[in-house]
Design a protein around this nucleic acid. Structure first.
Length: 434
RNA sequence: GCGGGCGUAGCUCAGCUGGUAGAGCCCCGGAUUGUGAUUCCGGCCGUCGCGGGUUCGAAUCCCGUCGCUCGCCCCA
């Protein structure tokens, strides 16, 4: 045998058994976006590397060490997208979507970051993104969170907690940053190695340290909320007020800072304790300066991204079952003559029962084997055609899930009879909780 | 980039202190010629991750290597 090739590390195959969970998440999101008036948009997976360097920030971990970047045959420096917002903003500007306009948009697809894989963290991962442009006020901040909260409800996910914070304007953040550097520099000896490194590049991240030994030091640090500019302060207070009005519980977390440079004012994160070391399931915030930074007119914006792998992981951890549609009918065909007639009959059944699922037996097999397959497929009924039935132009219909007596109908009446039977049974789930 | 754990049939795993591999599931067939899910019988399935070393002999010991996984970092 030839040498076997493997998938790239951190890039997963999604097998059929897993997919019902994904489809449930994706269709739930799709429906909600439509309900809230968000329109879908799709952008390329590859962009100029510069786009991400400019938007995410040169000195972020994503840009410094996690991007898949390469030169194409034409010598252009390209990157696989590590997140969706930059590409979406680029496209929105390029197509004039933000010219004097407000947009509620969403997108989804694969993202790429070259990190060490672990539970809930992969090199190719998938996000669903929600973005709103042209809305400066705090009401939209509350709305996008409302949308996400409804998604959890729809999927049956509980036990997520919402943390919120405000990063203020870039100016306010710069001033705060200076205060913070001063504070930590004076206590340099107490900092761990990671924090010392952060002190140079991204001092705000020290606040986010998971090292318990750093806790007291971090708790004593000056707080960003105390250094907000007045306008951001008002925005944040009103946002909290609006959010409270929606009934969604949130905790203000002064240590919540984001890893991407472009965030301003409101930031938030839905967290879990069910996924090992990865606690962020969905997070986002305002990025009021990004559109201008990427060459558009100044346009306020806010958005969030959710990690599909993590949401699916939550569903599985919580024992939430994703229903896999079982076929309504399994067609057993025994004998050459029956097979010939059976394939045509299967088509007639599909015409009469769209969406119900008519699974035709293939590759023959003993009668017993076919009945076993019928059972295993989860089908509600076995439609049996042997050479005897084929000769008489009839089919036997046996219920596999109830004790109902087997019946025999002619091919002409079969579609109608089954159509009357199947809706009552519905598309029964073949769900064993995997 | 740094640390821990693990690599035996398609899957889940057993194989104690070395004597060239086993179970369950899956799949196929059979148990009165055409009626499934239970049960019983049989069959199929392995370069024991790879390379080297120790040994009369290694899946079992040692070294290296690759891979997977969890954690640090970071983040969805």
């Amino acid at each position: 045998m030839a040498e076997k090739l493997q998938a790239i590390r951190g890039m997963n195959d999604l097998l059929a058994d897993q997919l019902p969970f994904w489809q449930q998440v994706e269709s739930a999101a799709r429906e909600l976006f439509a309900d809230y008036g968000y329109r879908e948009m799709r952008v390329p997976v590859v962009e100029h590397a510069q786009l991400f360097q400019r938007s995410i920030g040169e000195h972020t971990d994503i840009v410094e060490r996690e991007m898949y970047s390469f030169e194409d045959r034409g010598g252009d420096r390209l990157s696989l997208r590590p997140e969706a917002t930059a590409g979406l903003v680029r496209a929105a500007i390029e197509h004039g979507l933000l010219h004097n306009q407000r947009q509620r948009l969403w997108t989804s697809g694969p993202m790429f970051r070259h990190e060490r894989p672990q539970q809930g963290r992969y090199r190719q991962f998938h996000q669903i993104d929600c973005e709103a442009f042209g809305y400066p006020g705090p009401d939209i901040d509350a709305e996008v969170i409302q949308l996400s909260a409804r998604l959890w409800r729809k999927l049956g996910i509980r036990d997520l907690s919402l943390s919120v914070n405000s990063l203020g304007t870039p100016d306010a953040r710069r001033r705060y940053r200076a205060v913070l550097v001063e504070y930590f520099s004076a206590r340099r000896a107490e900092l761990d190695a990671d924090s010392r490194r952060r002190l140079e590049g991204n001092p705000l991240r020290i606040l986010d340290s998971k090292n318990p030994a750093m806790r007291a030091l971090v708790d004593g640090a000056p707080r960003l909320v105390d250094h907000l500019d007045d306008e951001s302060r008002r925005h944040f207070d009103r946002f909290l007020d609006l959010l409270a009005g929606t009934g969604i519980a949130a905790e203000v977390d002064p240590r919540l800072v984001r890893g991407l440079d472009y965030y301003t004012r409101t930031v938030f994160e839905w967290r879990t304790t069910a996924l090992g070391a990865q606690d962020a399931v969905c997070s986002g915030g305002r990025y009021d300066g990004l559109v201008e930074l990427l060459g558009g007119e100044p346009t306020p914006a806010i958005g969030w991204a959710l990690g599909i792998e993590r949401v699916v992981g939550l569903m599985q951890a919580a024992g939430i079952a994703a229903a896999e549609a079982a076929p309504a009918i399994y067609l057993v065909m025994s004998g050459e003559r029956a097979e010939r007639a059976g394939l045509a009959l299967a088509e007639r059944l599909r015409d009469a029962l769209p969406g119900a699922g008519v699974l035709a037996n293939m590759e023959g097999g003993s009668f017993k084997a076919q009945m076993k397959r019928a059972d295993k497929s989860g089908a509600a009924y076995a439609v049996i055609v042997g050479d005897d039935e084929a000769a008489r132009g009839v089919a036997a219909v046996k219920s596999l899930r109830t004790g109902a007596a087997q019946q025999e109908w002619s091919w002409d009446e079969l579609p109608g009879r089954l159509a009357a039977l199947v809706p009552a049974v519905g598309v029964s789930g073949n769900n064993d909780g995997r």
